[in-house]
Each structure stands twice: as structure tokens, then as C-alpha cells.
Simulated assay, not measured.
Amino acid sequence: MFVTAQQLEQQMPDATRLLSDEPEMETSLHYMQLLLLVTSLEWLWRDSNDFFIGANLTIYFSRQQLRNRDFRGPDFFLVKDTEKRSRSSWVVWEEDGRYPDLIIELLSESTADIDRNLKKNLYENRFHTPEYFWFSPENFEFAGFELVGNKYQEITPNARGWRWSDVLRLYLGVEAGKLRYFTPDGDLVPTPEEAAIAAQQQASVAQQQASEAQLQLEQERLRSQQLAERLRSLGVNPDSLG
């Protein structure tokens, strides 16, 4: 019997029962890199409520996948123009058929070949994800692809080795052994902790500048007072001087 896509989706389990089924990150390097990608983008878009970031979260997209459980979700993915709320997994048929707009995989010795080939083909041909990047926290291998027509083409890096993301409107690039976001002007997108430290440093500099200005005013007042006293000792009324 022929089964339509709508009927197929109706036979799927409820999204509330489809929990993420992902293993732990392989190393602390991978975990810290994933945390960096999530927190810095969340901080940059802190005033927006129309996006979802998935971190080591399962994407459910077909009945066969549910039966086989043979697909591991992306390490990092972004869906724009959607409700920003907590999800236990990303269930395509419960999200108006939406697939990620951007995916980043963190390469490891055990997953690199799958990420470069099987997953790349899946994201290109099934997901039609506009942008796909991969990065190795261990040897810093970094590549990026954009969907042109129905095929991925490599994103050409700039002189710094950064690759532009139209989805993010940001550069992705390796800095101090970490994959980071950079603004179109080349500024690093900070984590909340980095932003707090920078704000504290700016406040300290402003306070120091204010203290120096106050000290300079005080020194000028003392010099004026000393000059007035000197004039009086010479019999000159400083108040009479224009």
C-alpha cells in the first residue's frame, strides 16, 4: 500500500517521546569547543527569539532512521526563523519540515571519515542544509561548504583563513586553536564571560581616566592657589588682575 508523507508522519511517535540519543562528546577539547560555539552565538543574539541552536542533539527525519537508530545528530546545528525554546530533540515533521540552516561537525579520529563523506552527502542531498562546516579541535582541520544549486562548493577562505557564513552573517575562523566567530569588521565575538571581563576592563579604564582627570584638576587648583598666595606676598591682589 502506498503511504503518503503526511500519513507517514502521523504514524511517527510524538515529539515529546523522541528524546535525544547522542553519546557524550569524545574529549574535553570537543566539549569545550562546542560550549564555545553555543555560548558566544547565544550572547551575540541575546536580544533575538527566532532561532534554535542544537548542541549534540538528535535530528529525527525519517521512519527508517527511527527504526535503525543508525544516525548520530550533528555536533552543532542552527535553525533560523523558528521559535527559541527548549527541545529534547529536533523532530523535522513537528517543525514544519524544517532542517538546519547551518551545521558544524567536530572531527575526531573515529568520526572524521563519516563527517567528511556520509554526513556531508546527507546534509547536501537530504537535508539541503545551506552551509556545512567541520573543525578538528585536535589538529585544527577546518573546512566549509555552501550549497550552490544542489551541490556543496567549498567556501574560499580569506587571507586569515576565515570562511564567511551567509547564514550567520559572520566569519568562522581558527583563533588560538579554537573555532570562533568574527564580525564582518573582524572583531572576535566573545563568550558571555569574555564580554563581562571586557566590560569590567573598560569600566576600570574609565574609572582610572576619571581619577586622573580629577587629580589634574586638583593639581591645577593647588597651582592657582599657590600663585595667588605668591602675588599677595608681593602686595598684589590677585582678584584685581583681569
Score class of each variant (00 low, 15 high):
V91W: 02
G161N: 09
Y123L: 04
Y123S: 00
P184R: 03
N139R: 10
S86F: 11
K80C: 10
L106N: 01
F145V: 13
L122N: 09
S108D: 00
A203M: 10
T156V: 05
R87N: 07
Q200S: 14
K84C: 12
T82S: 04
N158Y: 01
P157M: 10
G149Q: 15
S165L: 02
A159P: 04
N158R: 12
K80E: 13
F127P: 02
A143P: 10
I114R: 10
I197V: 10
R163I: 03
Y132A: 11
S108M: 00
S204E: 15
F142T: 06
I114A: 10
R160M: 05
L170N: 08
I103G: 05
D113A: 14
Q153V: 08
P100A: 03
S86Q: 13
A199D: 09
L122I: 13
D75M: 02
G97C: 07
G144K: 01
S108A: 01
D185V: 09
P100G: 05
D101Y: 06
L170S: 05
E131R: 06
W134G: 00
V148Q: 14
E146S: 12
W162P: 01
S89E: 09
A159Y: 08
A195R: 09
F182S: 01
V79L: 15
I114K: 04
K151A: 14
S86T: 15
I155G: 09
D101P: 07
D96W: 07
Y99N: 10
A203V: 07
L78H: 02
S165A: 02
L188W: 07
Q202E: 15
L102D: 13
W134R: 01
Y181P: 02
F145D: 06
F135Q: 00
G73K: 04
N139S: 11
F77P: 01
F140E: 15
L188Q: 08
F135R: 02
N117H: 12
W162Q: 12
K84V: 11
E141G: 10
T156P: 04
Y152W: 02
K120P: 00
E109Q: 13
G144W: 04
Q153W: 06
R160A: 12
R116E: 14
W162I: 11
L147T: 08
E193M: 11
L107A: 00
Y132W: 06
P100D: 06
N158D: 15
F76T: 00
G177R: 07
K151Y: 10
T191K: 05
S110L: 07
D185N: 12
